[in-house]
Design a protein around this nucleic acid. Sequence first.
DNA 1: GTTTAATTTAAACGAGTGTTTAAAATAGAG
DNA 2: CTCTATTTTAAACACTCGTTTAAATTAAAC
Lengths: 212, 212
Amino acid sequence: MVNRSDTKTRILDAAEKLFAERGFSETSLRLITSKAEVNLASVNYHFGSKKELIRAVLARYLDVFMPAASSEIVSLQSSNKDASLNDIFSTLVKPLLDLNQLRSEGTRTFLQLLGRGYIESHGHLMWFITTHYGDHLTQFVKAVVDSAPHIPPAEMFWRLHFTLGTVVFTMASADALTEIAAADFGEHNDIEAVIRKVIPYISAGVAVPVTA
Amino acid sequence: MVNRSDTKTRILDAAEKLFAERGFSETSLRLITSKAEVNLASVNYHFGSKKELIRAVLARYLDVFMPAASSEIVSLQSSNKDASLNDIFSTLVKPLLDLNQLRSEGTRTFLQLLGRGYIESHGHLMWFITTHYGDHLTQFVKAVVDSAPHIPPAEMFWRLHFTLGTVVFTMASADALTEIAAADFGEHNDIEAVIRKVIPYISAGVAVPVTA
DNA sequence: GTTTAATTTAAACGAGTGTTTAAAATAGAG
DNA sequence: CTCTATTTTAAACACTCGTTTAAATTAAAC
């Protein structure tokens, strides 16, 4: 018989993998509970509903990542007052990769969850993040704005949303893309390679001079 | 009683709007047929299955857009042998905006459908596009690769997908973003203005030198 | 006008969904 | 051990889904 005390953890572990791979609405509670080897009703017993399970899955990552990212930005700003955009975006790499120590494939799972959530939640995920982690978020945006003073605020608004789209879309389809890249170019990229590929791209886009 | 001869068109019109707004799997045939004011079974009668309806919705746009984009690229290359990345991407603006003449909100609908399809179809959309419009696609990719010869093909693969994410995500949330931009910065942008903002961003990202 | 083909319609099918219930099993406290 | 509270379990509920069927209706052919 299954050790009772870790039923919640077994559900979260199975759910986050399936959510990241297949999306939220495409993942049934029966699939989650069968993979977690727990009873179907235990999800509603421990989490109340599927929606609250989704929030719990996201919060388990965000509670680790957001403070870690904040701390990295603070230490960058204290050591380098003229940090480049590349530096700013690069500070996120370590907190992201540290998620692999938290759980196997943690980085890829977290980014895919973010992408899925952003696309599927009709803005609810953004609301969830801004209300729960708003201070960390504005701190990061301010660091970006300060390091690209030649971009007017209105233009920067658009470019940061372009960047969000790049990251979210790429991560949501990261599995399919890495498969194609392996088949067509013999490249075997892990999630870290993709992250390091996207940073120069978004840095260049955000910083490119505004054409008249 | 409804004019029989346009049942297929009524279904396609209702389906593409709902698919773009809510995604494919989140849109039921009952919702489509009720909005189209046709009988539920007529979808299976005219299209065979939901999957084939999705393909028909996409094909109706791709059949117009792909040849138009190809023709624009050909005429650019014949008039300018050293076209910049900005020029290449800018050739897509007219074919995209012309979709608004095809159907109301055609441009945004098409881009949203592309995004939904890429995310939901587990690579099936990419197979569909490459097998049905492969020539147009490789022609465009070749034009991009030729105008940025310092980027290796494998790297370009990733950057073009970053670009796809940027465009698709931006257009999907263009309504909300233009509203926020108007409220926060007094900017009043239509779809065309957003497209023209994004082109310098993606051109810079695609062309940025690869770091060792 | 009659006959044939194409289309529309209402109804049902079988499978899958999240959630709830009440009984059974287990764990912890006295 | 006994009693209580927590947790697990099997079963059912109410609902939605894509699809199919067969009859009714409309359109086309002769």
